Amino acid sequence: MTDEWFRWDGEDLLLWVKVQPRAARDAFAEVLDDAIKVRITAPPVDGKANAHLTAWLARQFRVPKSAVRIESGESSRRKRIRISSPSLIPSALHDSLKGAKTIV
């Protein structure tokens, strides 16, 4: 893992997340050193949490579901997620991501 919970890779945004399934609502939570905690309402069974997470992130970043890919951690609560060319930075993350350095 990196020292940060996000990184720009050209036009793509890489996020390191720690997922909390079965939450009361979907939301970005606190940053935990090298990951951002993401609360989702879906249970962690039969891929439901991953499907819910990618669909929710797609809505947050205003991209098609196909633009959100879990690159590692498919069966773990810790995941690395690639969001291809996000159209919008969610207000909860805006201050953290707006000045971030692009990695090519």
Rank of each mutant, 00 (worst) to 15 (best):
P43N: 09
S96N: 13
L57W: 04
P43F: 07
R25Y: 08
I89N: 06
A67W: 00
L15C: 03
D12T: 06
E4T: 15
W16N: 10
R80Y: 02
L93H: 14
R39A: 15
V45D: 09
I81G: 02
D12C: 07
S84Y: 09
Q20G: 06
K18I: 11
I36R: 15
R25Q: 10
P44N: 14
V104F: 08
A27V: 09
E74Q: 12
T54N: 01
V68E: 10
R22Y: 10
D26R: 09
R25P: 01
H94S: 12
A100P: 07
E30N: 10
P86N: 12
D46M: 08
V104T: 06
P86V: 04
L88H: 14
R62H: 11
D46K: 14
A29M: 13
A100K: 06
M1K: 09
K18C: 11
E71I: 01
F28R: 08
R7N: 05
R7P: 01
T41K: 13
D9P: 00
P86M: 10
A55V: 11
T41A: 11
A58P: 00
H52L: 00
D33I: 14
R25G: 04
S84D: 14
I89V: 15
D46P: 02
L57G: 00
A27S: 14
P44E: 12
L57N: 03
E71T: 05
S66W: 02
L15D: 00
G73K: 08
W5A: 09
K37T: 11
K37N: 07
W16E: 10
V104E: 11
P44M: 02
L97W: 06
D9G: 03
L14G: 03
M1Y: 08
D95K: 08
A92D: 12
S84F: 06
A67N: 00
L93E: 12
G99L: 08
S91V: 14
R78I: 06
A42F: 07
D46Q: 14
